[in-house]
Design a protein around this nucleic acid. Structure first.
Length: 546
RNA sequence: GCCCCCGUAGCUCAGAAGGAUAGAGCGAGAGUUUCCUAAACUCUGCGUCGGAGGUUCGAGUCCUCUCGGGGGUACCA
């Protein structure tokens, strides 16, 4: 919370107590209608009953008792049924610009979440092919969330879980071997349920170039295993590179194989058994998740003795819990909607706090080209890869587009729109505001302003409204991290850009009298810092020229 | 059948923890450059918040039911 809000909260609480409220509960909100001021409270309405007086009477008594600091709050007005509306004082608004220049690269940041440890797992695509566009959305959302949590002082780590063990990897190895054998001149069929993507042909070809007929002369099983390992290595490297080019670094790549070599999945099974959270039916072992809040039970060991993916997953989450995070967040695709209740039930069964685990279900991405859907099918091998998308639209447009909708909403991503350099494209609107500011400084030719400028000449509505917007960055961070959805940042960025463009049209900088010009240059610089920060949270660059 | 997500302007979507007359962008129409980048700005029209009940001072927001759209529902990962 910032200074003005803190002040209001304490002054209001104090006044409520004076009026006889036992436990004042003050809520401050931003009125929808800007003519209602900057901050409003409904305290008079919510406490009318307790105080035995009409809401408006309570409001009047309250306002009469408020010891307002007029450097922060200019006025308090009673409105409607008993709302009290406050307006920021101009000196307070001015202090926001000064602060932006002082804080510079750290503008909007805070230490509210200091000591709070958050783990966000996202993308975690199988190492069986290149990343697709759904992974791209997850990457954009996850990485932005990480950046935003850090800006609030939390210790936040990004993790990618690699399923490099189990049945799918075996199938991958056999599929690669089939392609490899075909390259060697003895055509082989892709196994049932195997991978048909054409990228495996290229991979098999490059493996043969490097290793010759080495695997051709091996027993099929050994060859498949080793080729599987090579394929995993190749795709993990490829995915890492793609994500890195997308501006998405991970703090840790967690390999399922690590868990398996430590027998972690069997230890998890033992612990489930010890806590009597398993049962057997028709030769298979089930986790009795329905007794712990899930709608059904799940097989964890098949009747032929293989663990299903769920068991190592439980082991993995025990591992995360043991690492001591306050929050364990997973960003998953919509096909994993059963994951949350299943894993929480398992954790509850194991005596862990299921509330620490949070699952964000990211809805689908429909790729369009001028309004026409682009078909994606991994099985058929005609997938649109994340790589192609980035190469075609550029990182900035792609990352911004992925944040343009709430995570719970399916996203239509029109490639042609993202490429277009017109006003239909929302990325450029924001970037343009930043470039325009830079251009003012370029023309002025005096470098960036220092913070110790008299800002009192800033009195125009466009100037004050712009300052109001800049102040909101912290609120936006609270909202995006709290709601686990970075989308709100794009809304705010657009609003800042709009407000700046209005200012730009109505308040000329370079032709203004010296003192006004100096103050406006500070405002421009503050806006630039805000835009840079906001865009950086989205993983989008702030160009100096366009 | 069961589970998850979504129904708000012509289109795409915002709407904090329940608040005041429900907002943007795009599209459509009309304007604005002797002036710091017109990738901009200004003005105009646009709504039974899918429907019905309920909770209360007050509901787009919470609860129940219902209709519609999308996705998922393996001893696969």
């Amino acid at each position: 919370m910032n200074r003005a809000h803190q002040h209001l909260a304490s002054v209001l609480t104090e006044a409520m107590r004076n009026l006889g409220s036992a436990q004042p509960h003050v809520i401050l909100e931003k009125p929808r209608d800007p003519s209602h001021g900057d901050v409003a409270t409904n305290a008079a309405l919510t406490h009318a009953k307790e105080l035995g007086r009409a809401p408006r009477a309570v409001a009047e008594a309250l306002v009469g008792r408020l010891a307002l600091d007029h450097d922060l709050i200019e006025s308090a007005e009673i409105a409607g049924p008993g709302f009290i509306n406050f307006r920021f004082a101009v000196p307070y608004l001015h202090s926001i610009a000064a602060r932006a220049l002082r804080d510079a690269d750290h503008f909007g940041e805070s230490d509210e979440l200091a000591g709070h440890r958050v783990l966000i797992e996202f993308v975690s695509a199988n190492p069986s092919g290149p990343l697709n566009v759904v992974s791209a959305r997850a990457a954009a959302v996850g990485d932005s969330l990480v950046r935003m949590f850090r800006a609030r002082g939390a210790t936040c780590e990004a993790e990618f879980y690699v399923n490099d063990a189990g049945n799918q990897v075996r199938l991958l190895g056999e599929s690669v071997r089939a392609r490899y054998e075909t390259e060697c001149g003895s055509p082989a069929a892709i196994p049932e349920g195997g991978y048909h993507g054409e990228y495996l042909i290229e991979l098999a070809r490059s493996i043969r170039q490097r290793y010759g007929d080495h695997f051709h002369n091996q027993p099929a099983e050994d060859a498949a295993r080793e080729l599987g390992r090579l394929a995993v290595q190749h795709f993990v490297d490829d995915q890492r590179k793609t994500l890195s080019d997308f501006g998405v670094p991970f703090d840790r790549w967690f390999f399922e194989d690590e868990l398996r070599t430590q027998n972690a999945e069997w230890q998890a099974l033992e612990e489930l058994r010890r806590r009597e959270a398993t049962f057997e039916r028709e030769g298979a072992v089930y986790a009795a998740t329905s007794r712990f809040g899930d709608v059904q039970d799940w097989v964890i060991v098949t009747s032929d003795g293989r663990p299903t993916y769920f068991l190592p997953d439980v082991a993995y989450h025990l591992n995360k819990y043991d690492r001591g995070y306050d929050r364990v967040i997973n960003i998953l695709g919509p096909d994993h909607h059963t994951f949350s209740s299943r894993m929480k039930a398992a954790l509850r069964a194991l005596g862990r706090d299921p509330e620490k685990l949070e699952v964000i279900l990211l809805q689908h991405v429909t790729l369009l080209r001028d309004g026409e859907p682009v078909k994606m099918s991994k099985r058929a091998g005609q997938l649109i890869e994340m790589r192609e998308l980035i190469d075609e639209t550029g990182v900035d447009a792609a990352r911004y587009f992925f944040l343009l909708r709430r995570t719970s909403t399916p996203l239509d991503f029109d490639i042609e729109l993202a490429k277009r350099h017109t006003q239909e494209n929302p990325v450029y609107y924001v970037q343009y505001a930043h470039a325009r500011i830079e251009s003012i400084f370029r023309k002025a030719g005096i470098g960036y302003p220092a913070g110790d400028v008299d800002l009192r000449p800033l009195t125009a509505p466009e100037e004050l409204d712009l300052l109001r917007r800049l102040r909101e960055l912290r609120d936006v961070l609270v909202e995006t991290t709290g709601g686990r959805d970075p989308h709100g940042m794009t809304v705010w960025l657009r609003d800042v850009a709009t407000q700046f463009h209005k200012f730009y049209e109505n308040c000329r900088v370079l032709t203004a009298p010296a003192e006004l010009q100096a103050a406006r240059l500070v405002l421009c610089r503050a806006t630039q810092m805000a835009l840079q920060k906001g865009l950086a949270f989205c993983g989008v660059c702030a160009p100096r020229e366009m």
